[in-house]
């Protein structure tokens, strides 16, 4: 039967073709490091330096840590200090190191219904939004950005519970688009906001930027080999050392998207 022969040939071909088993380091990380393109510059440089291939899984900070807890990653790069501290305290992570930072921005509709003062303090801005009971869209997905947002409300002494405060349950890009359409305020990482603004997709404006409270620190944490015996600790350690080396830090410092600097390394090159 010709058909049967054809099927068998096709199946063998398809199943044999993928060269599957690879020696690699699995990096679970936040969408912001991946979507900006930083990792596509940083990882090839490390591979060239060490011969080690790194595969990154772009998910939110919460999910990245959950993956690492189940021993499905060797190393994480995340940005939610409170979650990171718990991750290390619970024994899942070791060798946590500060890597770089950038800033979150508070953005809102150009009409600015809550009369938030431009370039004022973020705490003051949140107070005005709460007072006006203006619409505010939260990520609502346990991402680093949402963790930061909740910490900011706490710093402002406000419990965001008015009807206009909503949770999108989606990534940064879709949340920005929704906020734009709802005329809502929201907290965003700078890179995603710039990208969406440059495509003309949104008209939200920056209301607060570049202040200590809005600092967005990224850390690198290795998965604890005592909890996960199969984890590639030595290679992951090499990767961490490379990220913090003058070469790695310089790549981060020099990285630009649309002509603008996006990340500030912890050890800025002289």
């Amino acid at each position: 039967m010709r058909l049967r022969v054809l099927l068998i040939v096709l199946l063998t071909f398809l199943l044999a073709a993928p060269a599957m088993a690879v020696d690699r380091l699995v990096l679970a990380t936040t969408t912001s490091t991946a979507n900006t393109g930083l990792l596509d510059v940083l990882l090839p440089a490390f591979t060239k330096h060490s011969g080690i291939t790194v595969h990154y899984i772009p998910v939110g900070t919460g999910k990245a840590l959950a993956i690492a807890k189940r021993c499905d990653a060797d190393v994480v790069i995340v940005h939610a200090p409170a979650l990171e501290e718990r991750f290390v305290a619970d024994g899942y992570g070791v060798d946590r190191q500060a890597l770089m930072h950038n800033y979150f921005v508070l953005v809102g509709p150009p009409g600015n219904p809550a009369k938030v003062q431009q370039a004022g303090s973020v705490v003051d801005a949140l107070k005005r939004i709460a007072q006006a009971k203006a619409p505010f869209l939260s990520r609502g997905d346990n991402s680093g950005t949402q963790v930061k947002e909740l910490a900011l409300w706490k710093a402002a002494g406000i419990k965001p519970d008015w009807p206009g405060y909503r949770e999108a349950g989606r990534g940064m890009g879709p949340t920005l688009t929704m906020a734009d359409e709802l005329g809502a305020y929201t907290l965003s990482d700078i890179a995603t906001y710039r990208k969406y603004l440059s495509t003309g997709r949104i008209s939200l404006v920056i209301l607060a930027d570049n202040q200590d409270l809005l600092k967005n620190p990224y850390s690198v944490i290795l998965v604890n080999p005592a909890k996960c015996p199969k984890v590639k600790y030595d290679q992951a350690k090499k990767f961490e050392k490379f990220l913090l080396s003058p070469q790695g830090q310089e790549i981060i410092a020099d990285y630009k998207a649309d002509g603008k600097k996006l990340f500030w390394p912890v050890h800025p090159p002289k």
């Binding site: 969408t31 979507n35 890009g173 995603t192 990208k195 969406y196 495509t199 997709r201």
Partner: peptide
């Protein structure tokens, strides 16, 4: 899904 989340519609 990735391109959409990046705003590269």
């Amino acid at each position: 899904a990735l391109e959409t989340s990046k705003g590269e519609f």
